[in-house]
Amino acid sequence: MDLRHLETFVAVAEESSFSRAADRLHVVQSAVSATVRNLEREWGVTLFHRTTHRVELSPEGRALLGEARAALAAAAAVGHAVDEVRGGLRGTLRLGIMQATQGQGGLSVAATIAAFRAEHPGVSVQVRQGGSAEQAERVRTGELDLTFLGLPDDALPGLDLTVLAEPELLLACHPEHRLAARKSVELKDLADEPFCDLPPSWGIRIANERAFAAAGLPHPLAYEINDLATITDFVTHGLAVAIMPSFMIAPGRPVALVPIRRGAPRFVVSIATPTRRPAGPAARAFVAMAQRHAYTAPPDE
């Protein structure tokens, strides 16, 4: 067994497909199948249950996946140390991002990646988008090296968080809505409003549900949508209201934004690395770059 065998096992597990794993590793599918068979023979276990349409980890495969990822991480740490000694960063950085229209908490992810690549051209950045709760778990399991998160917390189990911003969450409604002209609203004012919100694993949805639960109020969800532009569209046509930061609404859209007082949902934009394994130099350099690009509001805002 060598590291390439472990990489193949992890790739098949993460892709749930021999063909997709082969594409990811830039080898032919027969080589992937042969490597997995050799590992199963060497270890004396069945790693995957194969059917015509699906590839699933066996219980033994699930038990060994974490150890395989840990071994690959340890080998990568040695490579990172060598790169640091040589004075340059190389390799691949697996980065998780959220969905946002005008940046995340005032931070442009694209600008951060561009600046990082200009400073460290030897590092390839692979991007994976998803909900914050899902991305956090991918960092814990080793599927991602680090991720941007938008969650109500600035402390999460198994993760080291660097807080980048804490944007205010506002009521977004149609300009002719009954609450649009208010200077501020309370959550109790919204108890009977039809809400449009993101899926349960998304940070803003988690923040909203926690705030309504803390106030002893229902979260009256009329529409669940996983696209911020569509949520804004529903608000502009008067179908629903939403609670979101202003940066998630494209400029020029006819949306009234009203501050929420007393128990407003809390939304924290952070970048997360795993607690149980040390972040490599590329990950540490990216965190530092994100901090430099994070938006800081002037004192009078």
Score class of each variant (00 low, 15 high):
A282R: 15
V139Y: 10
H53W: 07
A172W: 11
G263I: 05
G263V: 06
S33I: 03
A282K: 15
H120W: 13
R253M: 14
E134I: 15
P259C: 02
A70I: 02
A207Y: 05
G263M: 04
G142P: 12
V258G: 01
A290M: 07
L144R: 13
L198T: 09
S108M: 07
E56Y: 02
M244N: 05
R182W: 01
H120R: 14
G79S: 02
A100P: 05
G87Q: 12
G44F: 11
S132T: 11
L57C: 06
L146G: 07
A285R: 11
L146P: 06
D300C: 09
S16M: 09
R117L: 12
F148L: 14
A13Q: 01
G252N: 11
P59F: 02
H26I: 12
A242P: 04
K188L: 12
V163C: 03
E40F: 01
F247S: 07
E186C: 12
T8D: 01
T296E: 13
V27K: 15
R262V: 03
L179K: 00
W43F: 14
G44S: 11
W43Y: 14
A115L: 11
F148A: 02
A294F: 03
T8H: 02
W202F: 15
A242K: 05
Q129A: 11
D23G: 05
L39Y: 05
A11R: 07
L156V: 15
D189M: 06
V123N: 13
G158K: 15
S30W: 03
N38Q: 13
V27S: 03
I260S: 12
D300G: 10
S270V: 04
S108L: 08
G142F: 05
D160I: 07
E137C: 12
P199K: 01
P298S: 05
